[in-house]
Computed example of a mutant assay.
Amino acid sequence: MRRFDAEYLTHTRRGMWADSREALSTLDLSTRERVLDVGSGTGALTRVLREETPGDVVGVDADPQLLDHVEGPAVVGDAFGLPFPDDTFDLVVCQALLINLPEPVDAVREFARVSRDGVAVIEPDNESVTVESTVDGESALAGEAREHYLAGVDTDVTLGSDVASVLAEAGLASVEITRYDHARTIAPPYGEADVESARRKASGSGIATDRETLLDGGLSTEAYDRLRQRWRQMGRDVIEQMADRTYERTETVPFYVAVGQI
């Protein structure tokens, strides 16, 4: 199972559900008495669930350090062996978790064990991510890096568009699917996180984190070095446009919300 730190989770989930929560309507949150958020991380979804649910919402994650950021009830636990008896919750939810698991169907079966009513999974299709930028070449460069990353990663990070089949294979019925596009936009005035992201591009530190995955995805060492060099130049162009307050970037990640009945 892949693990992420709090900074990464905060960046990737920033603004999630800020513009609309319509895609969560199939979860019937207003009727829920007890909800479990599996792989809650720093609690981004947990907070949304608590705002929409009159009952109790519990977060669970395998990393106790991430749970330090979660307000309210949260326990340490593994997605394949949740520390709860059968039928403890009336809804079990996860967001961007199954794409990081080697056996997502087994995890959903465990979700169903501790739920007496339904399971909802919210997963992205990382193959269909789009990037629009005022920096020439940033979109193409991001697409090139993504292509090799997808080929090299050892779990199915494109799972979102096929998540209904995972729930069906796990034995859930009446699966409903809703698509939600999460757009992360950078525009003036720039926040601290935006500036730090640009610095990481210019230094090449961000893409260096994924070096081994990119190499596993078909890049030679020389090709990776060339990609990183172009990535750093792109980062310098971003910083230059930020100085002129002309830089804008929108990354859109399609998520699929799937709800199945026990």
Score class of each variant (00 low, 15 high):
229 Q>E: 15
148 H>Y: 02
128 S>T: 13
242 M>K: 10
149 Y>C: 07
139 S>Y: 02
157 V>L: 00
185 T>Q: 14
218 G>T: 02
144 E>C: 04
160 G>C: 03
219 L>S: 02
239 I>R: 11
217 G>Q: 01
213 T>D: 00
208 A>R: 14
225 D>K: 03
202 A>Y: 08
216 D>A: 15
241 Q>E: 15
242 M>L: 07
116 R>V: 13
194 D>Q: 08
148 H>L: 09
232 R>Q: 15
137 G>K: 03
142 A>R: 14
191 G>A: 03
213 T>Y: 03
197 S>E: 15
243 A>F: 00
164 A>R: 14
239 I>N: 06
151 A>D: 14
175 V>K: 05
139 S>H: 01
137 G>V: 11
130 T>C: 01
196 E>P: 02
254 P>W: 10
220 S>L: 09
125 D>K: 05
200 R>E: 11
182 H>M: 06
118 G>M: 11
220 S>E: 04
172 L>V: 11
240 E>A: 15
208 A>D: 15
197 S>Q: 12
122 I>C: 11
203 S>E: 12
129 V>R: 01
214 L>H: 02
251 E>G: 00
246 T>L: 01
211 R>S: 04
137 G>D: 02
185 T>Y: 01
160 G>F: 04
144 E>A: 03
110 E>W: 04
188 P>V: 08
234 M>R: 13
225 D>S: 13
139 S>I: 02
118 G>A: 15
249 R>F: 07
175 V>C: 07
183 A>M: 07
225 D>I: 01
182 H>L: 10
179 R>Y: 06
162 D>F: 02
111 F>A: 13
245 R>W: 01
213 T>S: 08
221 T>N: 12
167 L>Y: 11
234 M>W: 04
180 Y>E: 13
129 V>G: 05
138 E>L: 12
234 M>P: 08
172 L>K: 07
160 G>Q: 07
171 G>D: 11
212 E>R: 09
249 R>Y: 09
167 L>K: 05
218 G>K: 09
162 D>N: 12
135 V>K: 00
250 T>I: 04
172 L>H: 07
128 S>G: 10
198 A>K: 00
192 E>Y: 01
212 E>A: 12
206 G>R: 03
218 G>Q: 03
251 E>D: 11
132 E>D: 08
127 E>S: 08
112 A>K: 09
233 Q>E: 15
242 M>F: 05
195 V>C: 03
227 L>K: 05
213 T>A: 12
